[in-house]
Amino acid sequence: MKRKVLLIYTGGTIGMEKDYESGSLRAFDFGNIFEKMPEMKLMECEVFVHPFEQPLDSSDMGPDEWRMIAKLISENYDQYDGFLVLHGTDTMSYTASALSFMLKGLSKPVILTGSQLPIGDLRTDAKENLLTSLYYASLYENNEAVIQEVAIYFEYKLLRGNRTLKYSAEFFDAYSSPNYPILGQSGVHLKIDKDNLWRDSLQSEFYVDDHICEDILFWRIFPGMNLNHFKEIPKMKVLILQVFGSGTIFSSSKTFETLQQIRNNGTEIVVVSQCISGGISFGKYENSNIFAKIGAISGKDMTAEAAITKAMHLLNNPKYEGSFADNFSENICGEISELGN
Protein backbone atom coordinates (compact mmCIF):
# COMPACT_ATOMS: atom_id res chain seq x y z
CA MET A 1 0.00 0.00 0.00
CA LYS A 2 1.39 3.36 -1.02
CA ARG A 3 1.62 6.08 1.59
CA LYS A 4 -0.30 9.28 0.86
CA VAL A 5 1.41 12.67 1.04
CA LEU A 6 -0.34 16.01 0.85
CA LEU A 7 1.83 18.60 -0.90
CA ILE A 8 0.92 22.14 0.14
CA TYR A 9 2.31 24.73 -2.25
CA THR A 10 2.48 28.21 -0.69
CA GLY A 11 4.65 29.97 -3.28
CA GLY A 12 8.32 30.82 -3.62
CA THR A 13 11.04 30.30 -6.19
CA ILE A 14 10.40 26.58 -6.46
CA GLY A 15 7.08 27.26 -8.22
CA MET A 16 8.53 29.45 -10.95
CA GLU A 17 9.92 28.86 -14.40
CA LYS A 18 12.15 30.91 -16.61
CA ASP A 19 10.89 32.45 -19.79
CA TYR A 20 13.98 31.97 -21.94
CA GLU A 21 12.82 34.57 -24.47
CA SER A 22 12.41 37.41 -21.97
CA GLY A 23 14.79 36.07 -19.29
CA SER A 24 12.24 36.76 -16.51
CA LEU A 25 10.78 34.41 -13.93
CA ARG A 26 7.09 33.65 -13.89
CA ALA A 27 4.89 31.47 -11.73
CA PHE A 28 3.33 28.39 -13.26
CA ASP A 29 0.16 26.54 -12.30
CA PHE A 30 1.40 24.19 -9.59
CA GLY A 31 -1.58 21.95 -10.21
CA ASN A 32 0.34 20.87 -13.31
CA ILE A 33 3.43 19.82 -11.36
CA PHE A 34 3.14 16.23 -12.59
CA GLU A 35 3.68 17.48 -16.13
CA LYS A 36 6.77 19.39 -15.03
CA MET A 37 8.04 16.47 -12.98
CA PRO A 38 6.75 13.14 -14.32
CA GLU A 39 9.26 11.47 -11.96
CA MET A 40 6.79 12.13 -9.14
CA LYS A 41 4.50 9.46 -10.60
CA LEU A 42 7.26 6.90 -10.05
CA MET A 43 7.51 7.63 -6.33
CA GLU A 44 6.57 4.93 -3.86
CA CYS A 45 3.91 7.25 -2.47
CA GLU A 46 0.79 8.91 -3.79
CA VAL A 47 1.08 12.69 -3.99
CA PHE A 48 -1.91 15.02 -3.75
CA VAL A 49 -1.41 18.72 -4.42
CA HIS A 50 -3.09 21.62 -2.62
CA PRO A 51 -1.76 24.96 -3.92
CA PHE A 52 -2.51 28.27 -2.21
CA GLU A 53 -5.08 30.14 -4.28
CA GLN A 54 -2.63 33.04 -4.47
CA PRO A 55 1.04 31.93 -4.25
CA LEU A 56 3.02 34.15 -1.90
CA ASP A 57 6.56 35.42 -1.75
CA SER A 58 8.00 34.15 1.52
CA SER A 59 8.43 37.73 2.74
CA ASP A 60 4.62 37.91 2.85
CA MET A 61 4.32 34.79 5.02
CA GLY A 62 3.28 35.43 8.62
CA PRO A 63 0.89 34.36 11.39
CA ASP A 64 -2.20 34.24 9.14
CA GLU A 65 -0.41 31.99 6.67
CA TRP A 66 1.01 29.81 9.46
CA ARG A 67 -2.55 29.29 10.66
CA MET A 68 -3.67 28.43 7.12
CA ILE A 69 -0.99 25.76 6.79
CA ALA A 70 -1.73 24.36 10.26
CA LYS A 71 -5.45 24.28 9.47
CA LEU A 72 -4.84 22.41 6.19
CA ILE A 73 -2.74 19.83 8.02
CA SER A 74 -5.38 19.49 10.74
CA GLU A 75 -8.26 19.08 8.29
CA ASN A 76 -6.36 16.42 6.35
CA TYR A 77 -4.45 14.78 9.19
CA ASP A 78 -6.36 11.49 9.17
CA GLN A 79 -6.40 11.17 5.37
CA TYR A 80 -2.65 11.47 4.75
CA ASP A 81 0.48 9.81 6.06
CA GLY A 82 2.72 12.83 5.65
CA PHE A 83 2.79 16.48 4.62
CA LEU A 84 5.17 18.44 2.42
CA VAL A 85 5.05 22.26 2.46
CA LEU A 86 6.72 24.06 -0.44
CA HIS A 87 7.79 27.49 0.73
CA GLY A 88 9.99 30.41 -0.25
CA THR A 89 13.40 30.20 1.36
CA ASP A 90 13.75 33.60 3.03
CA THR A 91 11.31 32.95 5.89
CA MET A 92 11.07 29.18 5.82
CA SER A 93 12.81 28.83 9.20
CA TYR A 94 10.21 31.12 10.79
CA THR A 95 7.34 29.06 9.38
CA ALA A 96 8.97 25.76 10.36
CA SER A 97 9.56 27.05 13.89
CA ALA A 98 6.01 28.38 14.24
CA LEU A 99 4.48 25.13 13.00
CA SER A 100 6.60 23.11 15.42
CA PHE A 101 4.92 24.94 18.32
CA MET A 102 1.42 24.94 16.81
CA LEU A 103 1.18 21.26 15.80
CA LYS A 104 0.73 19.44 19.09
CA GLY A 105 1.05 15.67 19.47
CA LEU A 106 2.45 15.35 15.95
CA SER A 107 3.05 11.74 14.97
CA LYS A 108 3.46 12.23 11.22
CA PRO A 109 6.15 13.98 9.16
CA VAL A 110 5.73 17.63 8.21
CA ILE A 111 8.57 18.54 5.85
CA LEU A 112 9.27 21.99 4.40
CA THR A 113 11.42 22.58 1.35
CA GLY A 114 11.99 25.06 -1.44
CA SER A 115 14.78 25.92 -3.85
CA GLN A 116 17.30 28.57 -4.75
CA LEU A 117 16.56 28.26 -8.47
CA PRO A 118 13.15 27.83 -10.14
CA ILE A 119 11.97 24.34 -10.96
CA GLY A 120 12.11 25.17 -14.68
CA ASP A 121 15.76 26.27 -14.59
CA LEU A 122 18.22 23.91 -16.26
CA ARG A 123 20.49 23.90 -13.18
CA THR A 124 17.72 23.85 -10.61
CA ASP A 125 18.04 22.38 -7.14
CA ALA A 126 14.25 22.16 -6.90
CA LYS A 127 13.78 18.65 -8.26
CA GLU A 128 16.13 16.92 -5.84
CA ASN A 129 14.77 18.88 -2.90
CA LEU A 130 11.19 18.04 -3.84
CA LEU A 131 11.68 14.34 -4.62
CA THR A 132 13.76 13.57 -1.54
CA SER A 133 11.38 15.54 0.67
CA LEU A 134 8.56 13.34 -0.58
CA TYR A 135 10.59 10.31 0.39
CA TYR A 136 11.09 11.58 3.93
CA ALA A 137 7.43 12.66 4.18
CA SER A 138 6.32 9.11 3.38
CA LEU A 139 8.93 7.18 5.37
CA TYR A 140 7.36 4.60 7.68
CA GLU A 141 8.66 1.57 9.55
CA ASN A 142 6.44 -1.03 11.21
CA ASN A 143 3.42 1.14 10.38
CA GLU A 144 4.86 4.10 12.29
CA ALA A 145 6.20 7.33 10.85
CA VAL A 146 9.96 7.57 11.23
CA ILE A 147 9.81 11.39 11.37
CA GLN A 148 7.28 12.81 13.80
CA GLU A 149 8.20 16.46 13.80
CA VAL A 150 8.48 19.55 11.61
CA ALA A 151 11.67 19.40 9.55
CA ILE A 152 13.34 21.22 6.68
CA TYR A 153 14.97 19.28 3.86
CA PHE A 154 17.42 21.24 1.72
CA GLU A 155 20.48 20.31 -0.34
CA TYR A 156 20.88 16.71 0.87
CA LYS A 157 20.24 17.45 4.57
CA LEU A 158 17.21 16.89 6.78
CA LEU A 159 17.18 19.36 9.69
CA ARG A 160 14.92 20.01 12.68
CA GLY A 161 12.81 22.95 11.58
CA ASN A 162 13.05 25.00 14.77
CA ARG A 163 16.85 24.66 14.80
CA THR A 164 17.45 26.05 11.34
CA LEU A 165 18.47 29.36 9.90
CA LYS A 166 19.07 30.49 6.35
CA TYR A 167 22.69 31.56 6.08
CA SER A 168 23.20 31.90 2.32
CA ALA A 169 21.21 33.65 -0.39
CA GLU A 170 23.59 32.34 -3.04
CA PHE A 171 24.57 28.70 -2.40
CA PHE A 172 22.34 25.66 -2.82
CA ASP A 173 23.41 24.63 0.67
CA ALA A 174 21.42 27.51 2.16
CA TYR A 175 20.44 26.25 5.62
CA SER A 176 22.33 25.26 8.72
CA SER A 177 21.45 23.82 12.12
CA PRO A 178 24.38 25.11 14.17
CA ASN A 179 23.30 23.86 17.59
CA TYR A 180 21.72 20.51 16.72
CA PRO A 181 22.93 17.64 14.53
CA ILE A 182 21.25 16.78 11.25
CA LEU A 183 18.34 14.32 11.27
CA GLY A 184 19.19 12.68 7.99
CA GLN A 185 21.28 12.94 4.86
CA SER A 186 20.75 12.09 1.22
CA GLY A 187 23.54 10.48 -0.76
CA VAL A 188 23.81 7.16 -2.53
CA HIS A 189 21.67 5.98 0.39
CA LEU A 190 19.03 8.01 2.19
CA LYS A 191 19.95 7.98 5.86
CA ILE A 192 18.21 8.85 9.12
CA ASP A 193 19.90 9.29 12.48
CA LYS A 194 17.11 8.03 14.71
CA ASP A 195 18.88 9.13 17.89
CA ASN A 196 18.42 12.75 16.80
CA LEU A 197 14.70 12.53 16.06
CA TRP A 198 12.11 14.17 18.29
CA ARG A 199 9.45 12.15 20.06
CA ASP A 200 6.57 13.69 22.00
CA SER A 201 7.09 12.36 25.53
CA LEU A 202 3.48 13.22 26.43
CA GLN A 203 2.19 11.09 23.53
CA SER A 204 -0.86 13.33 23.30
CA GLU A 205 -3.46 13.24 20.55
CA PHE A 206 -2.81 15.51 17.60
CA TYR A 207 -4.39 18.96 17.65
CA VAL A 208 -3.54 22.47 16.49
CA ASP A 209 -2.92 25.34 18.90
CA ASP A 210 -2.93 28.30 16.54
CA HIS A 211 -2.52 30.98 19.22
CA ILE A 212 -0.14 33.67 17.97
CA CYS A 213 0.34 37.03 19.70
CA GLU A 214 2.18 39.72 17.77
CA ASP A 215 3.10 41.98 20.73
CA ILE A 216 6.76 41.03 20.28
CA LEU A 217 9.73 43.24 19.46
CA PHE A 218 13.14 42.00 18.34
CA TRP A 219 16.15 44.29 18.81
CA ARG A 220 19.78 43.66 17.94
CA ILE A 221 22.25 45.65 20.02
CA PHE A 222 25.45 47.09 18.57
CA PRO A 223 28.53 48.98 19.80
CA GLY A 224 27.83 52.68 20.21
CA MET A 225 24.08 52.15 20.37
CA ASN A 226 22.11 55.10 21.77
CA LEU A 227 20.18 53.65 24.70
CA ASN A 228 17.70 56.52 24.51
CA HIS A 229 16.13 54.62 21.61
CA PHE A 230 14.92 52.05 24.13
CA LYS A 231 12.73 54.73 25.67
CA GLU A 232 10.93 54.97 22.35
CA ILE A 233 9.91 51.32 22.57
CA PRO A 234 6.14 51.07 22.86
CA LYS A 235 4.91 48.98 25.74
CA MET A 236 5.49 45.62 24.06
CA LYS A 237 4.71 42.47 26.02
CA VAL A 238 8.00 40.80 25.06
CA LEU A 239 11.32 42.34 24.00
CA ILE A 240 13.80 39.88 22.49
CA LEU A 241 17.34 41.28 22.76
CA GLN A 242 20.01 39.83 20.52
CA VAL A 243 23.21 40.50 22.45
CA PHE A 244 26.92 39.79 22.15
CA GLY A 245 28.53 36.37 22.55
CA SER A 246 27.24 34.26 25.42
CA GLY A 247 25.11 37.08 26.80
CA THR A 248 27.00 40.34 27.29
CA ILE A 249 25.90 43.95 26.93
CA PHE A 250 27.24 47.40 27.82
CA SER A 251 28.12 47.68 31.52
CA SER A 252 27.06 51.29 32.06
CA SER A 253 24.61 52.22 34.80
CA LYS A 254 22.38 53.68 32.09
CA THR A 255 22.06 50.22 30.55
CA PHE A 256 20.82 48.78 33.83
CA GLU A 257 18.46 51.68 34.48
CA THR A 258 17.00 51.51 30.97
CA LEU A 259 16.41 47.75 30.96
CA GLN A 260 15.08 47.80 34.51
CA GLN A 261 12.56 50.46 33.50
CA ILE A 262 11.41 48.27 30.61
CA ARG A 263 10.94 45.38 33.04
CA ASN A 264 9.11 47.65 35.49
CA ASN A 265 6.66 48.46 32.70
CA GLY A 266 5.72 44.77 32.59
CA THR A 267 7.71 43.78 29.52
CA GLU A 268 9.39 40.37 29.49
CA ILE A 269 12.96 40.46 28.18
CA VAL A 270 14.34 37.40 26.36
CA VAL A 271 18.05 37.26 25.58
CA VAL A 272 19.47 35.45 22.53
CA SER A 273 22.96 35.50 21.04
CA GLN A 274 24.20 37.18 17.89
CA CYS A 275 26.51 34.19 17.43
CA ILE A 276 25.24 31.53 15.05
CA SER A 277 26.71 28.74 17.16
CA GLY A 278 26.53 28.41 20.94
CA GLY A 279 24.13 30.04 23.34
CA ILE A 280 23.45 32.32 26.29
CA SER A 281 25.05 31.68 29.68
CA PHE A 282 24.25 34.30 32.31
CA GLY A 283 27.13 34.83 34.75
CA LYS A 284 29.87 33.55 32.46
CA TYR A 285 31.09 37.14 32.07
CA GLU A 286 30.55 40.11 34.37
CA ASN A 287 28.73 41.98 31.62
CA SER A 288 26.01 39.33 31.53
CA ASN A 289 25.04 39.62 35.21
CA ILE A 290 22.76 42.54 34.43
CA PHE A 291 20.25 40.13 32.89
CA ALA A 292 19.99 37.99 35.99
CA LYS A 293 19.51 41.14 38.08
CA ILE A 294 16.57 42.38 36.03
CA GLY A 295 14.95 38.95 35.70
CA ALA A 296 15.55 38.46 31.98
CA ILE A 297 14.93 35.08 30.35
CA SER A 298 17.77 33.15 28.73
CA GLY A 299 17.11 32.01 25.19
CA LYS A 300 19.90 29.45 25.66
CA ASP A 301 20.95 28.19 22.22
CA MET A 302 17.73 28.96 20.37
CA THR A 303 17.84 30.56 16.96
CA ALA A 304 16.33 34.01 16.69
CA GLU A 305 13.59 32.52 14.50
CA ALA A 306 12.66 29.96 17.14
CA ALA A 307 12.78 32.50 19.98
CA ILE A 308 10.51 34.92 18.12
CA THR A 309 7.88 32.36 17.12
CA LYS A 310 7.98 30.63 20.52
CA ALA A 311 7.37 33.96 22.27
CA MET A 312 4.51 34.72 19.87
CA HIS A 313 2.98 31.32 20.59
CA LEU A 314 3.31 31.44 24.38
CA LEU A 315 2.38 35.05 25.11
CA ASN A 316 -1.14 35.20 26.63
CA ASN A 317 -1.81 31.63 25.49
CA PRO A 318 -4.60 30.28 27.74
CA LYS A 319 -3.60 26.67 27.07
CA TYR A 320 -0.36 27.05 29.05
CA GLU A 321 -0.34 27.11 32.83
CA GLY A 322 2.31 29.00 34.75
CA SER A 323 4.31 32.08 33.85
CA PHE A 324 5.60 33.12 30.46
CA ALA A 325 9.18 32.86 31.77
CA ASP A 326 8.72 29.29 33.02
CA ASN A 327 7.05 28.14 29.83
CA PHE A 328 9.61 29.86 27.61
CA SER A 329 12.42 28.09 29.48
CA GLU A 330 10.87 24.67 28.81
CA ASN A 331 12.01 22.57 25.87
CA ILE A 332 8.66 22.23 24.08
CA CYS A 333 9.59 20.44 20.88
CA GLY A 334 13.37 20.21 20.64
CA GLU A 335 14.08 23.90 20.07
CA ILE A 336 16.65 24.22 22.86
CA SER A 337 19.46 22.21 24.36
CA GLU A 338 19.68 21.75 28.10
CA LEU A 339 22.67 24.01 28.55
CA GLY A 340 23.47 27.44 29.90
CA ASN A 341 21.44 29.50 32.36
Rank of each mutant, 00 (worst) to 15 (best):
K41F: 13
L315Y: 12
K2C: 04
Y136S: 10
I216D: 13
A70Q: 07
K41M: 13
L239W: 07
K284R: 14
F171A: 15
P234Q: 14
S273F: 01
D209T: 06
G322F: 09
I269A: 03
E257W: 05
P178K: 01
G105A: 05
N179A: 02
F218K: 04
Y80C: 01
Y140H: 08
V85Y: 04
Q203H: 12
E46R: 08
D209P: 01
L25Y: 15
D173W: 05
G11Q: 06
T258P: 02
H189T: 09
S253L: 02
S329Q: 09
N162T: 10
S97P: 07
L259E: 05
F101M: 07
G31W: 14
R67Q: 14
N76A: 01
N228G: 07
Y77F: 03
S246Q: 12
G161C: 02
L183R: 13
L7E: 02
I182F: 14
Y175A: 06
T309Q: 10
G266M: 00
F282L: 07
G283F: 12
K41W: 04
Y167M: 05
P51H: 00
I111Q: 11
S323F: 03
W198P: 07
G184V: 09
Y136H: 10
G88D: 05
A325C: 03
G114E: 07
D301A: 09
V208W: 05
I8R: 15
P178L: 02
S24N: 14
K104C: 14
H229Q: 13
P223W: 07
V270R: 03
K231W: 00
F28E: 10
A174F: 01
A137E: 04
I280R: 12
I212L: 08
S24T: 15
V47I: 13
A306Q: 14
N265S: 11
R160F: 02
S273M: 01
R67K: 15
I69F: 04
S204H: 03
N289Y: 11
I262Y: 01
V271H: 01
Q116E: 15
F291R: 02
E46V: 05
T258C: 03
H50I: 03
D173H: 13
D78V: 06
M43C: 14
S115A: 15
K71T: 01
L241P: 09
T13P: 01
M225P: 00
I332L: 14
G114R: 13
